[in-house]
Amino acid sequence: MAETGCIPVELAYAPAPRSVISQHADLPAGSTVREALALWQHAEVQAWLAADGADETLQCGIWGRKVALDHVLRAQDRVELYRMLQVDPKVARRERFASQGARTAGLFARRRAGAKPGY
């Protein structure tokens, strides 16, 4: 349970695919995202904070919505750090479709025997 005047928050960061580092913290009321992230001892996070968030490799948000480092936290906020995408999802899908072809991808890939095309 948090002390009076403290708000519970969660810090979450995924340094690599399929791995998440999560940490709970009790911060004083009125704390900012920058102050919450300063608690973390992860080298990549500290380097990003030292660059004042100007480094484009990471973005921060609360519950999936992008926020600035000076955003004031509320109780039960989940501060998340996002890595940049390696591949644009639209481009990846187009490349997969081009290599697989239309017959093995999409909504009508598995038709019943004797069914009309498109149904």
Score class of each variant (00 low, 15 high):
residue 1 M to K: 07
residue 2 A to Q: 11
residue 2 A to L: 10
residue 3 E to C: 08
residue 3 E to Y: 11
residue 4 T to S: 14
residue 5 G to M: 11
residue 5 G to R: 10
residue 7 I to P: 06
residue 8 P to G: 10
residue 8 P to N: 14
residue 9 V to P: 03
residue 10 E to Y: 03
residue 11 L to C: 11
residue 14 A to T: 10
residue 15 P to R: 03
residue 16 A to V: 15
residue 17 P to W: 02
residue 18 R to D: 12
residue 19 S to V: 10
residue 21 I to L: 12
residue 21 I to D: 11
residue 21 I to T: 04
residue 23 Q to E: 05
residue 23 Q to K: 10
residue 23 Q to C: 07
residue 24 H to P: 00
residue 25 A to G: 09
residue 26 D to S: 14
residue 26 D to V: 08
residue 26 D to G: 00
residue 27 L to D: 05
residue 31 S to H: 04
residue 32 T to A: 06
residue 34 R to I: 00
residue 35 E to G: 02
residue 37 L to F: 14
residue 40 W to L: 13
residue 40 W to H: 09
residue 41 Q to H: 07
residue 42 H to D: 15
residue 43 A to H: 10
residue 44 E to H: 08
residue 46 Q to M: 08
residue 48 W to K: 10
residue 50 A to N: 14
residue 51 A to M: 10
residue 51 A to K: 13
residue 51 A to P: 02
residue 53 G to T: 12
residue 53 G to P: 11
residue 54 A to R: 14
residue 56 E to K: 15
residue 56 E to Q: 11
residue 61 G to H: 08
residue 62 I to A: 03
residue 62 I to R: 13
residue 62 I to V: 15
residue 62 I to P: 04
residue 64 G to W: 06
residue 64 G to L: 10
residue 64 G to M: 08
residue 66 K to S: 14
residue 66 K to R: 15
residue 67 V to E: 09
residue 67 V to R: 02
residue 69 L to W: 01
residue 72 V to G: 01
residue 73 L to Y: 00
residue 73 L to D: 03
residue 76 Q to K: 15
residue 77 D to M: 11
residue 80 E to A: 07
residue 81 L to T: 01
residue 81 L to V: 01
residue 81 L to N: 05
residue 82 Y to L: 05
residue 82 Y to T: 08
residue 83 R to I: 03
residue 83 R to V: 13
residue 85 L to R: 08
residue 86 Q to C: 09
residue 89 P to M: 02
residue 90 K to I: 07
residue 90 K to W: 08
residue 91 V to N: 03
residue 91 V to W: 09
residue 92 A to R: 12
residue 92 A to E: 02
residue 94 R to T: 02
residue 94 R to M: 02
residue 94 R to L: 13
residue 96 R to I: 07
residue 96 R to P: 06
residue 100 Q to V: 00
residue 103 R to L: 14
residue 104 T to S: 13
residue 104 T to F: 03
residue 104 T to I: 00
residue 105 A to L: 04
residue 106 G to I: 02
residue 107 L to Q: 07
residue 107 L to W: 06
residue 110 R to D: 08
residue 111 R to W: 02
residue 113 A to M: 05
residue 114 G to Q: 04
residue 115 A to C: 08
residue 116 K to G: 04
residue 116 K to E: 05
residue 119 Y to M: 04
